[in-house]
Design a protein around this nucleic acid. Structure first.
Length: 374
DNA sequence: TTAGGGTTAG
C-alpha cells in the first residue's frame, strides 16, 4: 500500500505537470480505493490534499470518507465530516445516510439511528432497497426482529419492493430469536407474491428448526427445497447433516454425506469435521482416522478449528494417545490451541496421571498438564 | 466501472 501511495502521488504530479488538474472523480477513485483497505491515514491525507489544492470535496467525496470512518466505528469523526458538509451547503443523499446510520447500528446507538432516520426523511431523502436491507440486517442480528419487521412493512408501504434477500434477512432475524413459525410464514408469504426462495432461504430455516431441535420440521423444508428444484450448496448440506446428527439420525446423515458428490459438490472442512466428530463420539476411532486421511487425500486441508475440535472430542472420550497424534498436527502446522482445548488438557492432569500423559502428548503442551496438578 | 448494503454451516 505504501508503494501505491507513492505511485498515486507520482500520478497526480504527472497530471499536474501536464496541465491536467485532478478533479473530484480522480480523487474519489483514490479515496474509495484506500477506504477499501481501511487506510484512514492515507484517505484523510488525500482528502486534505485536494482541499489544499483548492478543490472543495463534493458529496461523493464526503460519502466515501464518511463510509470509511463509519465502517471502523469512528462515529464522532464521521459526524464531524457530516456537519462540515452541511456547513459548506452540500446536500447529503442516501449515499451519506446509509453508512452513517449503519455505523450507529454497529455500535448499538439506536437513538442516534432513529434521530438520523427522521432527519433523512425530513430532508426528503427516500430510503432505498440497500438502505432497508442494511438496517434490517443490523436490527435482526441484535435480536430486534420486531423493529426489523416494522421497517420491512414501512418499505412495502413506501413502494420499495422487497427482494429475496430482504426476506432472507428477516427470516434469519426470526430464527435467531426462535420464532420459527413467523419465519415459516414469511417463506409462504414470499412464494405467494411470486418470489422464489433460494438456497439461503431454505438453509436459514433448516438451521433455525435444527437449533430448536425441530428436526422433523427441518426435514419438511429440505423436501420443499428439493421439490422446488433449488440446488443445495455445500453449506446447505452441512446444515442438514448437522441437524440429522444432532437429532441422532446418523444413518440419514451418512446417506446425505454420500450423496454430496452426486449433487456436483464436494465436502468441505466443515462437512468432514461434523462426520469425524460424530465417529469419535460413538467410538469408531479407526473409521474417523480413515475419514481424516481420505479428506486430506481429496485435497481438503484441515484447519485449526477442525483439529482443535477433534482433539477435544478425543480427550472427552479419554483417547489420550490419539489426541496426542492430532495435537502434533496442530503443532506442526503452527496452529494455536483454543482455550477450550487447553482447558480439557489441564483438567486431564488433575486426575493424577500427569506423568503418564506427558509421555503421550507433544512436549509443547506439557505446561497445560502441569497447570492441572497445582 | 466515482459514492452506500446484505443472508446460511463446525
Amino acid at each position: 500500500m505504501e508503494q501505491s501511495f507513492h505511485e498515486m502521488h507520482c500520478l497526480i504530479d504527472l497530471m499536474v505537470g501536464n496541465g491536467i488538474a485532478p478533479n473530484h472523480f480522480v480523487y474519489n477513485i483514490l479515496i474509495s480505493a484506500y477506504a477499501q483497505e481501511e487506510t484512514v491515514g492515507e484517505v484523510m491525507h488525500i482528502f486534505t490534499k485536494m482541499q489544499q489544492e483548492g478543490l472543495n470535496p463534493d458529496v461523493a467525496n464526503y460519502g466515501a470518507v464518511i463510509n470509511l470512518l463509519s465502517s471502523i466505528g469512528r462515529m464522532d469523526d464521521a459526524m464531524s465530516q457530516y456537519n462540515q458538509m452541511i456547513t459548506e451547503g452540500l446536500l447529503p443523499g442516501i449515499i451519506v445516510f446509509t453508512p452513517l446510520i449503519s455505523g450507529f447500528c454497529s455500535c448499538g446507538k439506536w437513538e442516534k439511528v432513529d434521530e438520523l432516520f427522521s432527519e433523512m426523511l425530513d430532508r426528503g431523502i427516500c430510503p432505498d432497497t440497500v438502505f432497508f436491507n442494511t438496517v434490517m440486517d443490523h436490527l435482526c442480528k441484535n435480536g430486534r426482529v420486531i423493529e426489523a419487521q416494522d421497517l420491512f412493512d414501512l418499505m412495502v408501504n413506501m413502494g420499495v419492493k422487497p427482494f429475496v434477500r430482504d426476506y432472507n434477512t428477516l427470516i434469519h432475524g426470526y430464527c435467531l430469536v426462535g420464532k420459527m413459525d413467523e419465519g415459516r410464514k414469511l417463506l409462504d408469504n414470499m412464494c405467494s407474491i411470486g418470489l422464489k426462495p433460494d438456497d439461503f432461504t431454505y438453509s436459514i430455516l433448516i438451521d433455525g428448526y435444527s437449533m430448536k431441535g425441530r428436526i422433523g420440521d427441518a426435514l419438511i423444508v429440505v423436501r420443499e427445497m428439493l421439490d422446488g428444484k433449488v440446488k443445495p450448496s455445500i453449506i446447505t448440506f452441512n446444515i442438514m447433516i448437522g441437524a440429522l446428527l444432532k437429532g441422532g439420525r446418523k444413518e440419514e446423515a451418512k446417506d446425505l454425506f454420500d450423496g454430496i458428490w452426486a449433487n456436483g459438490l464436494v465436502p468441505d472442512v466443515i462437512t468432514y469435521s461434523l462426520m469425524i466428530q460424530k465417529l469419535i463420539e460413538e467410538g469408531s476411532l479407526q473409521e474417523s482416522d480413515d475419514l481424516f486421511l481420505s479428506m486430506e487425500k481429496n485435497g481438503c486441508v484441515a484447519d485449526s478449528h477442525m483439529l482443535n475440535a477433534i482433539v477435544r472430542s478425543l480427550l472427552r472420550k479419554g483417547e489420550v494417545p490419539r489426541a496426542g497424534t492430532y495435537l502434533s498436527k496442530i503443532d506442526e502446522r503452527v496452529f494455536t490451541l483454543e482455550a477450550s482445548t487447553a482447558g480439557l488438557l489441564t483438567a486431564l492432569a488433575s486426575g493424577g496421571k500427569c506423568q503418564e500423559y506427558k509421555g503421550l502428548l507433544p512436549e509443547k503442551y506439557h505446561s497445560f498438564l502441569e497447570q492441572g496438578t497445582d
